[in-house]
Nucleic acid binder design. Sequence first.
DNA 1: CGGTCGATTTCTGTATACCGTAGACCGTAG
DNA 2: CTACGGTCTACGGTATACAGAAATCGACCG
Lengths: 248, 248
Amino acid sequence: MRRMNAPEAAAGRIVAPPSMARLAAEALRAMILGGELQPGEHLVETRLTERLGVSRPPVREALQSLQHDGLVVQHPRRGMVVRQLTRHDVYEIVTLRDGLETLALRLALPLTDPDADLAPVRDALADLERAGEAGTGGATLVELGYAFHLAVVDLARHERLTGTYRSLQLQMQLCMSLNVASRTQESPAGNAARHRSLLEALESGEVDAALAAFAEHGHRSFLAVVEGLDGGTPESDRWLAQRRDAGA
Amino acid sequence: MRRMNAPEAAAGRIVAPPSMARLAAEALRAMILGGELQPGEHLVETRLTERLGVSRPPVREALQSLQHDGLVVQHPRRGMVVRQLTRHDVYEIVTLRDGLETLALRLALPLTDPDADLAPVRDALADLERAGEAGTGGATLVELGYAFHLAVVDLARHERLTGTYRSLQLQMQLCMSLNVASRTQESPAGNAARHRSLLEALESGEVDAALAAFAEHGHRSFLAVVEGLDGGTPESDRWLAQRRDAGA
DNA sequence: CGGTCGATTTCTGTATACCGTAGACCGTAG
DNA sequence: CTACGGTCTACGGTATACAGAAATCGACCG
C-alpha cells in the first residue's frame, strides 16, 4: 500500500491555506521593512496581538520566523526587538551575499538548457525594465532588482542556498529602509542596463565572464550605508577599507 | 573586545535560564540524530508532549527550531515529519558546506593574530587526538571532527556564516545517522593526522595552501552515503559523476 | 467482492488563562 | 541629595481548552 506517501505533494499544492501565523509574519515583515516598526523598537506581543487581530500563539510563531530571517533579535526574558544593524552586520550580509551568489553561479554554469533555464531571469529583467519605463517608485525598483538576483541564484536549483540568499535579501532591505541616503538615485534606465548586461553575460555561456560580471556588480553600493553605522569590528573595518580603496 | 551585539552577549551569560522550548529542541535533536526518531516518521505533538514532559507550545516552538535547522519538514495541515534526505539534498549540503568553508577561509585569512586566533582550533584538534587515543566511540569522533571544522569557520568571525554552517553540520549528522555504511572505519590516528595537517596549513600562513588543503579535505567521503539514496536531480547527478571521476 | 461515500477520531491550528520573573518606580535612610 | 531596598506592574513563558480540517475506518451500494 502507500504509494502516494505523505512527504511529497508540497510542490504542486493547489490551494494554499493561509495560516494566521504566516499572514502575521508577512504583515510584520512589511511593517519592519516599511519603517513602521523601527530598529531597536520593542515588539510587545500583546500590542501586536491587538494590532494584527490575531492571538498570541500565531504572533509568537511569526516572530520566530522573523528571528530566523534575521529581522528581529530575541532577548531571553525581555522579548523581541527589531534588529539594529551594525557595521559588522552589513559586512556579514554583503560578504555572504557575494559568496553565495558566486557559489550559485559556479554550480549553475554551464547551463544545461540555457534558453529554458534563463526564462525566469528574462522575465525578472522585463519586469525591471517595464517598471523603470513606467517611472514606478524607487522602492519597487529595488525590490525588482532583488527578484532578478534571486532568479539568477535559483539557476543553481539549490533550495538551501536560495533560502539563505532570500533571508539575506530581507536583511538588505532592512538596511535600506533605515537609511534614506541609500537612494542612490541611479537612473532607472541605467539600473536596467546594468542588469541586462548581467543577463547577457549569462547568455554568452562564458562561465568566467559571467562570474566576473556578477562580482563586479556585487561590489557596487552599500559603502554609503555602512558609513552611517556604528558597531565596526577589525574584520569589517579591514574589509571596508579594502572596498573603499577598490572603489576609488 | 565586543564583537557581538551590545545588548546580548549570550556567550558570557552568568545564569542561563533554561527555557523549556530550548530544552525540548535539544532533546528532539538528540532523538533524531540518535536514530530514535527515524526519517519519515510523523511527529505528533501530543505524543512528544507526554514524551518530553512539557506542554504543546514549547514543543511547537522546538519543532519550528528544528524546521529551521532542516531536520524536520512541515506539511501544512498535517504536521511535522523527520526529514528524509534525498540524493539532491546531500548534493546541496555538501556543495554549500564546501562553499561556506572556502568563503570563511577567504575572509579569515590572512589571520591578524595567528597565535591567538588559532587557539580554539588547536583545542578542538587536541580533543580529537585525545579521543582517538582513548579509543572513544566513532560517533564522538565524528562530532569532534565537526567541532574542529566549526572552529575553523569561526575564524572568520562571521555569525551568519557560522550559523548556516552549524545548521548544515546537523543535517550531515542526520545523513550519517541513517547510513551505517558511513562508518568509514578510518583509523582514529589517520583522522587526527588529516585534521592536524589542516591546522598546519593554517599555521603556515600560506593562504592558497590552506584553501587547497581544505578543499581537498572536503572532497572526501560522502560518496558512499549518496549511493544509497533516491531523489537525484540532473544537477546532483552531474555533480556526483564529477566527484566519482575525481575520486577515482 | 470491490469501490465509494459518510461518520468518527485524531491531530493541527488557534484562542484564552495563569504563573514567574524582570524591570521600573517610589519611598526611605544615610 | 544620593543611594539602596522594597513593592508594583507588566511582559514573556507555559499550560489548558476549543474549533476546524484531514485521515482512517466502516458501512452501504454497485
